[in-house]
Design a protein around this nucleic acid. Structure first.
Lengths: 250, 250
DNA sequence: ATGCAAAATGTGAAAAAATAACATTTTCTT
DNA sequence: AAGAAAATGTTATTTTTTCACATTTTGCAT
């Protein structure tokens, strides 16, 4: 990396950076600074804002949001869940983009003191400075999904009890259960089922009829499923027959 | 808050927001959206970027400091520490703004696989997508300082051993020791000293001759102290006499 | 209801910033 | 040392933002 780009990152460390100021300090034209900032932004090292740049908010989302359309659907689902389970005293919110959407809705709508246990940094951060008390499981941080899994997280989990487990899934019902593509995560999900009085799964309908690596829950372990309106009827029947309360966005 | 502003925040939840798009969707002029965004930005609810806005990224930063003079000093100190202890295999990085500066330097300069244990979310997030393996202690999240303290964190800590402890302090040497103003944090710091082979404290010289609530370390428990050039000579002598290696920025 | 004041919103001009295209300088290779 | 390639600077163009002011809406007292 160019020496000058390193200096730009240095300047950024103290919070933010203005193009004019940086150009003067480095004795180059504003255009050059712009070009550097553009390159550094592409490498996810910073974020350009009007007039300059700020450090990359790496924490904020596991993935740099791609499909807004799907996200809106997820928020609708999360919102429906919120309206149907609140108020509760304690929640476990698992890792995932749909569960993160739920956390954000909780952050904005809930004014009561709720204890939230989570293994996801984005979820914890979404509840930053809200009325929620947040307990984060410890363990090894997976830096792609920004969550904590593994033996340490599982040990921590067993010290708590919650009213509701909120979880997503990568695949549903293929052979009657809920699946995730990560083995260690499945293990953690299984243990969270054990500490929760009720369990809800939120997922968009595209996950049905898919398969994924590991099953973490059988049908009768789940109390509530929230999804969108496009769920094929054969699945609805199956869910209802298994005693799962089914909610769909309209 | 105005209904429309709530809607804007809603749109933002899915990642980002474009002024034109939002104006069309809300049936108002772009100017009105701009005005709303400006107001919401002042309330720290979002960040305006070219053409729109993104959610407020400061989630993992304790304070959204911009252009802090003291911060530059902290980076100089942290940098000096980096040059003197690296390479190591494992580190415990405690919570604090100076230790966060160290984490950022580590993130940028280090290319080797280092295991970092921390109780600070900002530190964990600074090491996001680096060669470092990050272990986060579990426990209750303090949402002001974004760190984890308490019994759960302490229990977690005891399962590890590290080469170096990196810690800051709120006060130093008043009656020969290192102090913090938070009792639970002091307790955690004491335990981290027990699991570390070496201990370093990084702090600016303004902390000397101050007092703070709780002592977490005696002089002989510390191996290395890094501070700036303004440390009064009587303290240097005292430190060196206690066998502490002293480093000062120039 | 009516009129008035205050607030909110819209409009177009002006300023500022980002981009693009092109000119110039520097660096590297042979 | 020449030429190509890369980096940087300059200027023009486009886009975005801001500002000032006109218009509409809202709230409230009469």
């Amino acid at each position: 990396m160019h020496q000058r780009q390193k200096k730009l990152l240095d300047m950024l460390q103290s919070g933010s950076l203005q193009i004019k100021h940086a150009a003067a300090q480095l004795n180059v034209s504003a255009m050059t600074v712009r070009r550097d900032l553009k390159e550094l932004e592409e490498r996810k090292l910073l974020l350009r804002v009007k007039n300059g740049a700020i450090p990359h908010p790496a924490c904020y989302e596991p993935e740099p949001v791609a499909g807004n359309e799907l996200m809106e659907k997820k928020f609708a689902i999360a919102n429906l869940l919120y309206e149907n389970i609140m108020p509760v005293n304690s929640l476990f919110i698992s890792t995932g983009t749909t569960t993160l959407a739920f956390a954000k809705i909780l952050a904005r709508r809930n004014k009561l003191p709720v204890t939230v246990i989570t293994n996801s940094l984005p979820v914890a951060s979404a509840l930053f400075r809200t009325s929620c008390k947040v307990i984060l499981l410890g363990g090894e941080l997976r830096t792609n999904s920004l969550d904590l899994i593994g033996p340490a997280a599982e040990r921590n989990l067993l010290e708590y009890q919650v009213d509701y487990l909120i979880s997503g899934c990568d695949a549903a019902l293929a052979d009657y259960g809920f699946y995730t593509s990560d083995v260690s995560l499945a293990q953690l999900e299984q243990k969270s089922l054990a500490i929760a009085h009720h369990a809800a799964i939120i997922t968009d309908s595209s996950k049905f009829s898919r398969r994924a690596l590991t099953r973490f829950a059988a049908l009768d372990e789940i109390d509530l499923l929230v999804t969108d309106e496009k769920l094929p009827p054969e699945y609805s029947k199956l869910l209802v027959k298994s005693g799962i309360k089914l909610l769909q966005t309209s």
